[in-house]
Amino acid sequence: MSILVIAEHDNSSLKQATLSVVAAAKAIGGDIDVLVAGENCGAVAEAASKAEGVSKVLVADNAVYGHFLGENLGDLVAELGKGYSHILTSAGTTGKDFMPRVAALLDVAQVSDIIRVESEDTFVRPIYAGNAIATVKAGDSIKVITVRPTGFDPVAADGGSASVEQLDVVKDAGLSTFVSEQKAKSDRPDLASAGIVISGGRGMQNGENFKMLEQVADLLGAGMGASRAAVDAGFVPNDMQVGQTGKIVAPQLYVAVGISGAIQHLAGMSDSKVIVAINKDEEAPIFQVADYGLVADLFEAVPQLEEELKKVL
């Protein structure tokens, strides 16, 4: 078997998620090649060549791949992928964008967001926002797979010495062009990848009160989230929503403040390692999933939390 892993990167550095995808490839077994497609991405190729378990790094360095447009990447990977038994990438927004195109062009199914490898053709993935876990067998000759990075411990970033081969394949579908990019302005980590997330719910009462949470988030270096109820009430923007229809998060620490714990919210955060709930309603369902529950008025508890954290951090 031979596996092609498409690296996730920003043209200057290799994303750690790629090391988790290589780990998934190792679990499948076989030779592992890594494709680095981008523009002026030599440093990424070098990093990929050092990753544990990689045999060969293929580099497609061209302006047409600079912004990772799905149409161009899809055409490139579909052509290269024909010679492999498995094609893998991380289930970030880039992988989710181009990978289904690859599957369709190869006329095979895609297995999305796997969290475990059972065998070379059988994989485990969450469905219903993690409320059920499916074991799926892929019948096609080429398996096209996206990998949820949190499901696999990354391979070592150093120690490997893969060969690096420059490709001269330029695929420009001519369908789309990059216009602009707006990276998140805040210094706070991205919600989906933050190690700590602090979220507020309807109990926050208004948007102004979220400032209290921001202060705690800044102390902890945490990402900020919210329940659907808080978003629907207009306290905070939609992109902060954690839940089945919002962002799915699995940080080391999740702090739920004034969140009752509706099913739709729990679906988005119950894979967190440690969950803290602060709520004045002792019967709130959030306490059934919380490792540490504090029954208290959040307007007293949150300022106290800030003070206590200042003492220990």
């Binding site: 876990i133 919380a290 529950g293 106290q304």
Partner: peptide
């Protein structure tokens, strides 16, 4: 093309402890 072999409930989370104060 894909066959679902089985569907399971995720590992249930146990409720933890209540703490007295911050």
């Amino acid at each position: 093309r894909l066959t679902t072999l089985k569907v399971e409930a995720p590992a249930a989370r146990q409720a933890g402890v209540k703490v007295a104060d911050v």
